[in-house]
Design a protein around this nucleic acid. Structure first.
Lengths: 233, 233
DNA sequence: CGAACATATCGTACAAAGTACGAGAATGCT
DNA sequence: AGCATTCTCGTACTTTGTACGATATGTTCG
């Protein structure tokens, strides 16, 4: 009746590259990148460090892998849809993903080899833009601008010393006092009169910028051609 | 006639926190963050690892220190100047600094305690905005948007697998072939028809976005009041 | 001048990390 | 059953940050 030693061993899911990457993400999610070590990863998979090396070449490959997994979580824009709505959806999704996995931002800089999910992603966005009539040049501008904004926003949020509107006061209060000496008058005003006011949430800033950018881009499109008909030619 | 042992020892500049940080930046500049270790730092200062600990508490303090040094290199906007020009100057300067020190971007995310240069910087930008008539709310939006864009652009450039328009071809050529299989058709078109065309330089994308953002912001200002005179109240 | 103290240097050593090497166990195929 | 392939992991080496405490180098005061 026994298969190997204990009945428990039967339910032991076999190791796999997928499981390794999944576990790695889970660890990074709640311990930061620093908490992700080969040893901690092995522990969480109930195995030993060196066993992992059968599924990944080295730690860098794990990092590349989880960065690409991130791209898989971001919603792709639909090629047929209205470009502004599609881009907004995609940007918002990307931003939410990066909020959920703040460690990914730091990784993006160091991992220069794009994975398949990353490529698929870029391709879909370009497809949406081209279908909407963006020239190649404008598509390039758009892509650079939007992505910079999304990543930059994520970077900003990740480097804030607080996590949400609640914990803001805990940090900002003491901080304001520190520079009540007279340095940083504008910063002081800004903190006291705006940021620390009830209802302020830094997270809300994202939409303002996103809309401003999308509207600005719309103005660069040759002809919306959404009048009933322009008589044309 | 001898002072200590050899005449050479006289010209040995004494260690100091400044020199430690300076050396750290130099090492990071040409070896990346990974090249910056306590030992490599000590070597470059011609001393021994443990000697550094008299000037900094630990490595984290070094990292905080060089991040703040980065902010010192960014041009501050003048409070009196025309806001758009001032913001553009500052954004361009920040972007250039981050290009020169790409490692700084990765650090920004992890270092959550702002240094004095960082604070001074924020204060100056806010001052410029307020002087130009930005409400606190609009100033917050502006700051978030512009910084996100600048940092995001830097992040993008840092994660490119090439360094300039020249080395682009070396990397992109093989890459395009890799997905000539039929996947990523838009990416392929984009690369072949646009990015790989002579004259394309990703670095040029920055200005497009910056101008778009600044123009968009201008539209949010209550009244330029730059007509000869508005009769006013 | 010398003793006492402060400041700065650094030798030694340890813990935590990535991973090379190769032995052993498990599994599949004929 | 026997062999080959695949997977597991024990051991050990290297690189890192840095704790601890010893030395050396001024500085001050009697």
């Amino acid at each position: 009746m026994n298969e190997k030693s204990s009945g428990r061993s039967a339910e032991r899911v076999p190791l796999s590259r997928e499981r390794v990457l999944q576990s790695a993400m889970a660890i990074a999610d709640d311990g930061g990148l620093a908490g992700l070590t080969i040893r901690s990863l092995a522990r969480s998979l109930e195995t030993k460090p060196m066993s992992l090396y059968h599924y990944v070449r080295n730690k860098d490959e794990i990092l590349d892998g989880i960065v690409d997994a991130i791209f898989n979580e971001i919603e792709l824009p639909a090629a047929g849809g209205e470009w502004k709505a599609e881009l907004k959806r995609r940007a918002t999704s990307a931003r939410n993903v990066l909020r959920r996995h703040p460690w990914a931002i730091a990784l993006m800089e160091s991992r220069t080899v794009p994975g398949p999910a990353n490529l698929r992603h870029h391709d879909a966005v370009l497809g949406t833009l081209r279908a909407a009539g963006f020239s190649l040049a404008l598509a390039a501008h758009t892509y650079a601008l939007l992505d910079a904004y999304v990543y930059g926003s994520a970077l900003q949020e990740a480097s804030l010393p607080f996590d949400g509107p609640e914990s803001l006061a805990e940090v900002a209060g003491p901080m304001v006092e520190m520079f009540s000496a007279g340095d940083y008058p504008h910063l002081r005003e800004f903190a006291l009169q705006h940021v620390l006011q009830p209802g302020y949430d830094f997270g809300d800033e994202f939409d303002f910028g996103l809309d401003l950018i999308l509207d600005g881009l719309a103005a660069h499109l040759p002809k919306p051609a959404d009048g009933v008909d322009a008589g044309a030619a």
